[in-house]
């Protein structure tokens, strides 16, 4: 019979007789997702409800006790931990818009025919992203120290005595490192998004008499709104998770405390304070805060993207 062959091949393509086939294909993702994302979250949540308790002088051993939400209460009651959230919020409110504006401006500039040596300049802007964040912070750390910084020495030469690691300035010095590191990658994403916009739209606008600037602001930006919101969202999340740069700069200035950002506070609680249970509760709180901010930004972005594309 000739029936068997077609059926077999149909099966191969449709998988109709083997309903488990799709699951096999997604199994690697699901396994990694469960092991490296869901499981750690569950472990953190469970850990946050317990505490390792000693008694007396502590030399009689420890017992793990269920303490409910006490760790959360302690974390929320820690003014310095909460101040860390305020600090990254202030940082984010300034650093993220500045970085996104810079990245968008550069992407639009590279998208015009006006720029010579585009490949070179794009590469130059992108290059800092290839430098690991820790190394970037080390580099800038040298540039922020008056006796070893050619930058500050040059400034002193013209009579300006800048202290970039003072309590009032250090936040912006950290922001500068992130700006230097991440503007490039955001520019590349926005530039790539611009390449997908049909050129006919620009021509139509030009025929209507729109200037390059008008096209950039009125056509290009709305067209790549989804990419802008994606990069903004990941930048905001990155801000909440701020750790590498301040942790490294902490080694050159005492004005970055051990709990300067929420992530640093978690690190300090678990490694320096040796209280992984409290650190778990703090991590859960940070995760929740990130979730809330992400949902808010996404909500907002969906609405504005819709409006922007509707307008075209």
């Amino acid at each position: 019979m000739s029936v068997a062959l077609p059926r077999a091949s149909r099966r191969r393509f449709s998988g109709a007789g083997r309903p488990w086939v799709p699951y096999v294909f997604i199994a690697p993702f699901v396994a990694l997702f469960l092991v490296f994302l869901v499981a750690p979250i569950l472990v953190a949540v469970v850990n946050s409800l317990y505490s390792r308790q000693s008694s007396g002088l502590g030399f009689g051993g420890t017992e793990v006790e269920f303490i409910g939400l006490d760790n959360f209460a302690r974390a929320i009651g820690d003014a310095d931990f909460l101040a860390g959230f305020g600090r990254v919020a202030l940082y984010g409110i300034v650093q993220v818009p500045v970085m996104m504006a810079l990245a968008a401006a550069l992407a639009l500039l590279f998208d015009t025919a006006l720029v010579r040596g585009r490949k070179f300049f794009q590469f130059a802007v992108f290059l800092p992203y290839a430098v690991p964040g820790v190394i970037a912070a080390l580099l800038w750390g040298f540039l922020y120290q008056p006796s070893v910084s050619p930058l500050l020495q040059a400034l002193r030469g013209i009579g300006i005595h800048a202290d970039l690691l003072a309590p009032g300035t250090v936040l912006w010095s950290v922001a500068n490192v992130s700006l230097w590191s991440y503007t490039g990658i955001n520019m590349i994403i926005l530039f790539a998004a611009l390449q997908t916009v049909p050129r006919e739209i620009y021509e139509a606008a030009k025929l209507d008499g729109a200037s390059e600037f008008r096209i950039a602001v009125g056509v290009k930006l709305p067209m790549i709104a989804p990419a802008i919101l994606l990069t903004t969202l990941s930048s905001i999340i990155g801000t909440l998770q701020l750790f590498n740069e301040p942790q490294v700069l902490q080694t050159v200035t005492a004005n970055i405390a051990s709990d300067w950002t929420p992530n640093m506070a978690i690190y300090a609680a678990s490694t320096l304070g040796k209280n992984p249970n409290l650190a778990s509760a703090m991590a859960v709180l940070l995760g929740l805060a990130t979730l809330i901010v992400s949902v808010l930004v996404l909500r907002l972005s969906n609405r504005t993207t819709k409006r922007a594309t509707d307008g075209l």
């Binding site: 000693s54 005492a254 004005n255 405390a257 051990s258 709990d259 490694t271 320096l272 304070g273 040796k274």
Partner: peptide
């Protein structure tokens, strides 16, 4: 016990002393 916590607390506070 917990030399590390006291150490961290002192150093964080001292940073605010020198400023």
């Amino acid at each position: 016990p917990n030399f590390g916590t006291i150490q961290t607390a002192i150093l964080d506070e001292f940073a605010k002393v020198v400023t």
